[in-house]
Design a protein around this nucleic acid. Structure first.
Lengths: 166, 166
DNA sequence: ATCATAATATTCGTGTCCTGATATTATGAG
DNA sequence: CTCATAATATCAGGACACGAATATTATGAT
């Protein structure tokens, strides 16, 4: 019903009222929260498409990236880094363990913590995923000026900081 | 492990390396895609908390808002507006029908389409949810200048426009 | 030493959200 | 009219993502 494909349209009268992505409340006049969701949604889909070529979901890639950056971190550490709950990370780690991309070792001192690390196949796959992710990131930067980028980055960090404590 | 609550900390050596929300790659120097995800994540949680007081999830509120704005729209219309797949919207509509917040009528002409409308209890609940949502939106606007807001809005719309076709 | 507090890992149930697939109904071209 | 094309609604399956709850282990104060 976005006017671009009104060829086979069941109810032109109603459909004509429904705006496309840049129009009406879906455009710059819309709610900030809605626009943020719309943009993040698009980004998530771009990343999922890109990472599907190496057999990873974007949450899996995110968690593997965290583990690569902080080898030996715990489930709870990852949850905080990724702004997810421990339960969610648990499910993602379980999927990665099933694929033998990560392994866990009991903490040498603390009896409860399990240290998580990438396996060799995990490191290799992460490298291939990173190449895809960087290509997407690069496209994003090309979309705006350096001046705007500074403003946008500051705003994004402020938005995350204003989050309620988990 | 964010330094703010390092009281009971299992592994201070590793934890000290892990940045908080505004620091390191979690700050303005991080990947745009990651920052966008982090910000949208925080916003989603704010909305879910606010809407939980009226018993709605934020996708349910979003879909009800669409139906309120375009009464008689179809499942497919909503999917396009919310940037979701028809299957996802189907699940949300099913939940709303279980709660008797929306109803469906066969399209008067088209034999396949089902027109969706809010019930009276649905309209009432949407009104109460809207008050909560507007309070969150208002807080967002207070966080930045009018000049920055224009830049941010333009960028968010560009990000959504660059989405791959569903 | 004990005991409240807190952090960890985990399970359960519900609600998104996607890809893939199927059945039904319209529409347009021939 | 007929048939290819497309749009609709829906089912099935898998992967997040959350709140609530449980069990285990540490820590800190008394």
């Amino acid at each position: 019903m976005s006017k671009s494909r009104a060829k086979t349209n069941a109810d032109a009268a109603l459909s004509a009222m429904i705006p496309g992505i840049g129009a009406g409340k879906r455009g710059e006049a819309g709610y900030l929260g809605y626009l943020l969701r719309q943009a993040a949604n698009a980004q998530r889909r771009r990343m999922d498409r890109a990472l599907a070529t190496v057999g990873l979901t974007h949450p899996q890639f995110l968690v593997m990236t965290m583990i690569g950056a902080y080898p030996g971190c715990s489930n709870a550490d990852i949850a905080r880094l990724a702004m997810l709950t421990p339960q969610t990370v648990h499910a993602i780690i379980a999927a990665l363990r099933r694929k033998a991309l990560v392994s866990r070792q009991p903490h040498p001192v603390h009896g409860r913590i399990l240290n998580i690390e990438l396996t060799n196949p995990g490191k290799a796959l992460l490298g291939r995923g990173r190449a895809r992710a960087l290509a997407v990131e690069s496209d994003l930067k090309d979309m705006m000026s350096d001046l705007d980028e500074a403003t946008v980055r500051r705003w994004l960090v402020d938005m995350a900081r204003a989050a309620p404590a988990q």
